[in-house]
Structure formats: C-alpha cells, structure tokens
Amino acid sequence: MPDSGGRADAAAGNPAADTPTGFDLDAAWELNPKVALRPEPFGALLYHFGTRKLSFLKNLTVVGIVQSLAETPTAEAALAEAGITDAERPLYLQALGALADSGMITRR
C-alpha cells in the first residue's frame, strides 16, 4: 500500500511519516539568515528576502521552537525544551519539515 505521507500516517505511528522529508531532528537548525520573523498576537509572520515568500505561523509554540533553534544543539532538543509530548510530535514535525522545505529554517 503506498504511503500517503499525510498527518494520519504520522498519528498512526508510521516511522516514515515521523520525520518529514528533508528534515533531520538530530541536526542543528536555525532561522534562515535571509528570513525575518515578526511576532504577532496570532503567532508570527516570516518573510524570506531571497524568495520574497511570506509565511504565517499560527501557533505560538511553533514560534518559540523556531526562535530557540539557534540556541539548542538539535531540533530534537528544541522540541524537548518546548515540552512537546509524544502525542503532539507529529504536528510539530510536520511544521518544522514544511519550514525546512520552504527554506525558512536551515541547517547550521
């Protein structure tokens, strides 16, 4: 059966869906130097000056994780520092994977 790669797969514990494509939890990450993060009451705006792409983070915990990436040794450590539970992990892995895929966060 083909892997759909969706949220349901991650929630079901499919190991391939636990780590999004192109995202390594054991790597050191940071906000891309070409990206500005502007906190907002709903979360944050991200603007990539290279691609001119605007993204919205609508989750304050994701904003905190993104801001802490440069100060933690790995993305895994940033999730642990934020208190992300096993049940919450798929949502945050999906968000970090999307940010990595779009170039908003990069490896250090």
Rank of each mutant, 00 (worst) to 15 (best):
P2M: 09
S4A: 13
G5T: 11
G6R: 04
R7G: 02
A8L: 15
A8I: 11
D9T: 03
D9E: 15
P15E: 11
A17T: 10
D18Q: 15
P20G: 11
P20I: 09
P20S: 10
G22N: 05
G22D: 03
F23I: 04
A28L: 01
W29I: 01
P33F: 08
P33L: 06
A36K: 13
A36M: 10
A36W: 06
R38A: 12
R38W: 06
R38F: 10
E40P: 01
E40N: 02
E40M: 15
E40S: 10
G43A: 05
A44Q: 08
L45A: 12
Y47V: 13
Y47P: 00
H48M: 00
F49S: 13
G50R: 09
G50E: 13
S55I: 07
S55D: 13
S55P: 01
L57H: 06
L57F: 02
G64P: 05
G64D: 09
G64A: 11
I65N: 01
I65Y: 01
I65S: 02
Q67N: 12
T72H: 05
T72S: 07
T72A: 03
P73T: 12
T74K: 05
T74Q: 02
A75P: 08
A78W: 03
A80E: 09
A80C: 04
T85C: 07
D86R: 13
A87E: 13
A87Q: 09
R89H: 15
R89E: 13
R89P: 06
L91P: 00
L91K: 14
L91W: 10
Y92R: 00
Y92P: 01
L93C: 14
A95E: 07
L96W: 03
G97R: 02
L99Q: 05
L99K: 06
G103K: 06
I105R: 07
I105K: 08
T106D: 03
